[in-house]
């Protein structure tokens, strides 16, 4: 092994580097390349054409202010993103605050944090399906509403709707906010909070001027995670939307199933670019605030 050898880190990192090259870097490069290829019903052939991109945005400018399918789909997905982000951020922040500053023993903190994390290790599909007996037309909630006489016919928008997709997103992804924010908060020096209080700051002022700025790295990491998950999603929107709601990821999936690989690849490149812009914006926001 020769611990003094300079080669050691290289063979130690080699397996991971090889896997990322073969199953991440090369596939991304292949997507970019294939997005310029031609296709017909049976095969794809190398070329250098832009028609896959122009197909995606065909008529999009001309139709304005009406939205073409692509713009409408992106808008729909971005709205989900914004809603899920806001909800998971508020819930995640409150829960992380509770775990770090209100729970007193470290053991209890670990146990409660684990309780939040354990569902992450179980199947997402099952966690989605499990809403059906609650939200369905004959589900528990509708039974309750009928019994109470709130409505005389079952509420239809509970399942396979915008609402149920949103609910499932929050259900599945809040953990991605809790853990990074908790991690940032745990590093905050308690004396800073005492100082703020001694200086006459109210609870809200302390929260706004001390806690939130110091939790920013965690908030940024959590936000990046949640936003990228929602932007690329097609499974949650598919199952919880009853296959009726469009999303960017779903468009790519459908085109892949129809073997329209170059078109799907072009869509993937556009999606990737959008996600990158969102992430850059987010990191910029955090860094600029840090500078001030």
């Amino acid at each position: 092994m020769g611990s003094k050898s300079n080669k050691t880190p290289y063979w130690q990192a080699a397996p991971m580097a090889a896997v990322f090259t073969l199953f991440f870097a090369v596939p991304l490069a292949v997507i970019v390349i294939v997005s310029f290829w031609q296709y017909n019903q049976y095969s794809i052939t190398p070329a250098f054409i832009f028609s896959n991109y122009t197909d995606i945005f065909s008529g999009c400018i001309r139709q304005l202010p009406d939205l073409c399918t692509t713009f409408a789909t992106y808008l729909q997905t971005l709205i989900f993103c914004a809603e899920v982000w806001a909800l998971t951020l508020v819930i995640g922040f409150a829960l992380a605050y509770f775990l770090v500053f209100e729970v007193r023993t470290p053991t209890m903190q670990v146990v409660l944090a684990l309780i939040c994390t354990i569902p992450f290790w179980t199947s997402n599909v099952i966690r989605m399906i499990s809403w059906i007996p609650l939200l369905g037309r004959n589900g528990l909630i509708n039974q309750g509403l009928l019994a109470l006489g709130v409505t005389d016919h079952p509420v239809e928008w509970l399942l396979y709707s915008h609402f149920s997709v949103l609910l499932a997103f929050v259900h599945l992804n809040t953990v991605f906010m809790i853990i990074p924010i908790l991690n940032s908060m745990a590093r905050i020096d308690r004396s800073l909070i005492e100082a703020a209080r001694d200086g006459g700051a109210s609870g809200w002022q302390t929260l706004w001027n001390v806690l939130i700025p110091l939790s920013k790295p965690g908030i940024a990491i959590g936000s990046i995670f949640v936003i990228t998950v929602v932007m690329g999603d097609y499974i949650t929107i598919g199952i919880m939307g009853g296959q009726q709601i469009a999303s960017v990821g779903k468009v790519i999936q459908v085109q892949t199933n129809f073997l329209q690989f170059p078109l799907a690849a072009a869509n993937a490149v556009v999606l990737l670019a959008t996600v990158l812009v969102l992430i850059l914006g987010l990191t910029r926001l955090v860094d600029i605030r840090k500078e001030l």
Binding site: F23, F24, V26, P27, L28, V30, I31, V34, I224, F225, T228, V229, M231, G232, D233, Y234, G249, I252, Q253, T256, F261, A264, A265, A268, L271, L272, V275, I279
Partner: peptide
């Protein structure tokens, strides 16, 4: 953080 559908499509291609 790259959307999984993109990675999946890339590997398939």
């Amino acid at each position: 953080i790259v959307p999984s559908i993109v990675v999946s499509l890339g590997i398939a291609l």
